[in-house]
Amino acid sequence: MASVPITIQIISLLSALLFLLFIFRLIVKGKLREEYSILWIVCTVILIIFSIWRKGLEQISLALGVFYPPSLIFLGAIFAIIIFLVHLSVVVSRQQNQIKVLTQEVALLRNELKNRHVINEPEASGASPSAALTN
């Protein structure tokens, strides 16, 4: 590989910046929590670095003894994706646990309220009991 053509370099740089902008917008709008955005920001920064540092990928591949530089990209990308998926499974498991505890707490509180005759019909959605959730 002699050198990366300039057009593809510009395209990758632009798309990486656009992606970064997209992530920032999601955070600002409150649709993405900061802790989950860290990985995406790091990924984009790496993309930008390699868009600018043209020989970087080849030099690192050479240093690691990888003959075909793109395969290094795939290796790194797949690795990152797997780690992130595991992380998401952990998050989902934690949330499932939290939902379970909350559901049980709601059922127990409904029972309590019914016994104190605060509410008659537990599933009356209009009645929002002012029971403070204490830890």
């Binding site: 939902i99 379970k100 559901t103 049980q104 709601v106 059922a107 127990l108 409904r110 029972n111 537990p122 599933e123």
Partner: peptide, 30 residues
Amino acid sequence: LTIIRSLPCSYLNLPVNLGIGGAMHSGYRY
């Protein structure tokens, strides 16, 4: 639920389906 309400017993009404384990756990907490 309608039937349970008419029965001579207390009841917990889970707002989300938790499965047998989660249901029993809320009973044990009670």
